[in-house]
């Protein structure tokens, strides 16, 4: 049995009278790629924000490797192994590609500020090491040729990739991807699918992803949760979810999910 990496219990958050997320419970096992789907406004990104500590939940518990992370700040959760990408890309645009990655490796460095300012031996040794690791990571993601480019100058698809690279730089246990395929053409989406699988295997992590591209979700996810009005209305393997009448009702208002793929 694969161990559970991330577990969420009875998670709720209310914004005034709005019940954005209501009593959500789920878990992710090691090495799993899990999808979180649902119509717009269902609360998917809110769940990501709860997991990473951007919002504090009204009620509920979150466990990462069986440790509660509820009291931890966003940066501490990142240190503990929670990494994410954003729906609307949030790169450090005026920094070079490699500096974007190195920034996320900050927690793995510990030379002091004075060593950094006066270029002490600690600075030189650690910067050399971090530079090597950042280049290795960019190499894996196929971005090494653009290492010294400003992040803002990368084409859209590569910016998405760089966001994943930056997330990987903090050595995560769980990778949260918020609509990674948004705005991509079918070729890019197919490539992204390979990348996510490769990343999962190579870095030995679990992936939770939000996505609207149904064929993509059905292809890549081992397990899917469906969210509607802040509640989980269905969960299961892609086949089960696809044929669940409740999901079809909520999501597509009657039409069969992924009907295009079957054709």
């Amino acid at each position: 049995m694969r161990p559970i990496v991330l577990e969420v219990e009875d998670l709720s958050v209310y914004f005034g009278g709005l019940r954005a997320v209501e009593a959500v419970s789920f878990y992710i096992k090691k090495g799993q790629i899990v999808g979180l789907i649902g119509p717009n406004g269902a609360g998917k990104t809110t769940i990501f924000n709860l997991l990473t500590g951007v919002y504090a939940p009204t009620r509920g518990a979150i466990y990462l490797d069986e440790k509660s992370i509820l009291k931890k700040k966003t940066w501490q959760r990142s240190q503990m192994g929670m990494a994410r990408t954003f729906q609307n890309i949030r790169l450090f645009k005026d920094m070079s590609v490699i500096d974007n990655v190195k920034t996320a490796m900050n927690n793995q460095l510990d030379y002091t500020m004075l060593s950094g300012v006066f270029r002490g031996p600690g600075y030189r040794k650690e910067e050399r090491a971090v530079s090597r690791r950042a280049h290795d990571l960019l190499d894996v993601m196929g971005l090494d040729a653009q290492a010294d480019e400003y992040a803002r100058n990368l084409p859209y698809g590569q910016q998405r990739k760089l966001e994943i690279a930056r997330a990987l730089a903090s050595n995560p246990r769980v990778l949260l991807l918020d609509e990674p395929a948004a705005g991509m053409n079918p070729t890019e989406t197919a490539e992204l699918l390979q990348t996510i699988r490769m990343v999962r295997d190579r870095f030995d992590l679990s992936v939770l992803l939000i996505e609207h591209d149904m064929s993509f979700v059905m292809d890549i996810c081992e397990y899917i949760f469906v969210l509607d009005y802040g509640r989980i209305i269905a969960a299961g393997e892609p086949e089960d979810v696809r044929n669940n009448p409740q999901v079809i009702e909520a999501y597509l208002g009657g039409e069969a999910l992924g009907a295009d793929d079957d054709a």
Partner: peptide
């Protein structure tokens, strides 16, 4: 200049670029 090009400087510039992303990348903003 040397502060700006050390790990501390990268963290500081990342805060300028995007505070939420910086904190999500493990920067103690």
């Amino acid at each position: 200049y040397t502060f700006g090009t050390s790990r501390h400087g990268r963290a500081v510039i990342a805060i300028r670029e995007d505070e939420i992303a910086a904190e999500s990348s493990g920067i103690r903003t």
